[in-house]
Simulated scan of single mutants.
Amino acid sequence: MQGRMVVTSPVIVAAIVVVVSLSLAAAVDARGRSRRLVRSYDEPCKKMRLYFHDIIYDYSNSTSNSTSAAATKPTALATAVSRNGTFFGEVVVFNDPMTEGKALPPSLEETAVRAQGLYLYDKKEEYNAWFAFSVVFNSTAHRGTLNLMGADLMFDKRRDISVVGGTGDFFMSRGVATLRTDAVEGFTYFRLQMDIKLYECYV
């Protein structure tokens, strides 16, 4: 008995691909809610502008007004290469307020949006940093987190870091955050303008 060769129609293959894609585009969050993926590479499915305020404690400023602190000292290599030092190897841990406008909030500890994580100085010849942090939302407008990471090329006017995921209202979101240094005051304060554009959103 001879075997029969089965010829699969391109239309059937395409239909199978669509069905599998649709099944993969649905997910369930921590509360058991079914979420549907919205993806666009031309226009973001969600965008927002926030300002990131970092006030580093350097032993001379107020502890109550500081929102970040060095967890490690710069390496010896930093001062060996540069007379002024570049903080190479220093790790800073932060719990910074984020705002929709440029002004610092009245209470630095009780803002509805916060950035929590770390940055480290990773270039020995000049200032350069690498970020890994979560933007934590706790308001009536949004609840959940966005997780971001990437190189902050500090001498570039604008630079991008990746939005690699999220929780709550931002469940499994992905996109890009464009950073711009908006203000600097010595070594104790800087403000970043952060334009977040999400290209994958679960709704």
Rank of each mutant, 00 (worst) to 15 (best):
C201D: 10
L24P: 03
G165C: 03
A112P: 04
S162L: 08
R49E: 03
L108R: 09
I16N: 02
A70N: 12
L22A: 04
R158H: 06
V20A: 11
V164I: 15
F131C: 14
F190Y: 12
D96S: 15
S62H: 08
L198A: 08
K46G: 02
M1V: 07
R4M: 09
G144Y: 05
V203W: 09
H142Y: 15
T67P: 05
Q193R: 14
T99M: 11
S173G: 07
F187M: 04
T79Q: 13
V92K: 10
E43D: 07
S64A: 12
V6S: 02
D96M: 05
P106H: 07
F190E: 04
K157S: 14
D54Y: 00
A27H: 12
R158G: 00
G150N: 08
R49W: 00
M172I: 06
A112V: 12
H142K: 15
D122I: 05
G85I: 10
T145M: 08
L192N: 05
K197G: 01
Y189C: 03
G85R: 10
G150S: 04
Q193S: 14
S68Q: 04
R158A: 03
S173A: 15
I56W: 00
P44G: 01
A141Q: 15
Y202G: 09
F155Q: 13
M154C: 04
Q2K: 08
T99F: 14
I56E: 12
F190H: 06
D58G: 02
A141R: 15
N128C: 09
S68C: 08
A30F: 06
Y119V: 13
Y199Q: 08
V11R: 12
F137C: 10
M194A: 03
Y189A: 05
V7A: 14
A129H: 03
F94C: 12
E185F: 02
I161S: 02
G175I: 00
N65G: 10
R39Y: 10
V164N: 00
R36W: 13
E100A: 14
N61Q: 01
L24A: 13
R114A: 07
A76T: 15
R114E: 07
G3S: 11
P44F: 01
N84I: 04
V184R: 05
V11N: 02
D195Y: 07
F133V: 04
S62Y: 07
L104Y: 05
V164C: 02
S64N: 06
L148Q: 03
L104N: 04
N138C: 03
L24H: 07
N147I: 09
Y199D: 06
S64I: 14
R180T: 09
T145S: 11
A14F: 08
Q2E: 13
G150K: 03
R180H: 12
A129E: 12
